[in-house]
């Protein structure tokens, strides 16, 4: 297995932001909960590496803490999607054409006809805006994503002769699903998981930007951009920095996903062999 350049760059970018998020639990250059009006709207300098916002808070510190929110929302939502979506996909493929498959797939279609933002709107209208509700909305959105990809991957496996061999060996569908199917769709899950993770970063930012996600005082890149919007003419760095943070995190995850796909795709590996 050759580790590609995009995988290296992607993993490096992702590690930097993950490290920043983890470090923020122990240390940040400044306390992001302390307002300091005299220091407000400063550009980048030796004391404030990335400048300060309209309340005089250190933007570098806020980026570190905001990474925490972004990564947490994305991670939890992807996990929800995996835990619920993968078994559904496996079950649907194992009983292709049955009423169970039909119900799972039609259910997926229905969830798919709710665009992500609409799901978030529905939930916040009833439950109120919060990071938790953003996670739930994105988590629900992820279920059919994983269910579908696992089902289609599993379906192509079910017609393979090694599955027939396992059935001749007397193994039941559940056992075959976990012993034979799951390891062979794991690469699909990893790659799709990376994609959904990077989407989660963008979704959290967008929802927080319009006020449906993380609420103050929880620092979030989306909220930072919402604050920056009115200041964009006088303090462009307030908008530039969080935007670039989102851009680089998402870019890193996408590159990592591409690299993983190239590395894990058995088809490509067979061609190399």
């Amino acid at each position: 297995m050759k580790i590609s350049r995009s995988l290296l760059i992607g993993a490096a970018l992702t590690s930097v932001f993950t490290a920043a998020a983890l470090l923020s639990f122990l240390w940040t250059p400044y306390d992001v909960t302390v307002l300091s009006i005299p220091d407000r709207l400063q550009g980048p300098s030796a004391t404030h590496w990335l400048g300060t916002d309209h309340f005089g808070r250190d933007i570098f510190s806020m980026i570190m803490v905001g990474a925490r929110t972004s990564l947490a929302v994305a991670l939890v939502a992807v996990t929800i999607g995996l835990i619920l979506g993968v078994p559904l996909g496996l079950a649907a493929a194992a009983r292709k054409g049955s009423w169970l498959d039909e119900i799972i797939m039609r259910g997926n279609d229905i969830i798919f006809s709710f665009p992500l933002l609409v799901l978030a709107i529905l939930l916040t209208a009833v439950l109120g805006p919060s990071a938790t509700n953003a996670i739930i909305a994105f988590g629900i959105f992820n279920i059919p994503v994983f269910a579908r990809i696992v089902r289609s991957g599993a379906l192509s496996l079910w017609s393979r002769e090694f599955i027939m061999a396992a059935r001749v060996a007397g193994k039941g569908t559940t056992r075959i699903s976990f012993e034979h199917i799951l390891p062979n769709v794991a690469n699909l899950m990893v790659v799709q998981g990376t994609v959904q993770f990077s989407l989660g970063i963008q979704v959290e930012a967008a929802l927080s930007f319009v006020g449906l996600g993380a609420q103050p005082p929880t620092p979030s890149w989306g909220r930072m951009l919402a604050d920056a919007q009115t200041m964009v003419a006088i303090a462009p760095h307030m908008a530039l920095v969080p935007g670039l943070a989102i851009l680089l995190t998402v870019l890193g995850l996408n590159l990592m996903g591409d690299g993983l796909r190239d590395m894990l795709d058995p088809r490509i590996r067979v061609e190399r062999a």
């Binding site: 963008q202 930012a205 935007g243």
Partner: peptide
């Protein structure tokens, strides 16, 4: 396209405003 996919649309919008409008 890698860059394009990674850019948050609403942030790109703010940058467009900054450049082309302001």
């Amino acid at each position: 396209t890698q860059l394009g996919v990674a850019i948050p649309g609403f942030w790109f919008a703010m940058m467009l405003v900054l450049l082309f409008a302001i």
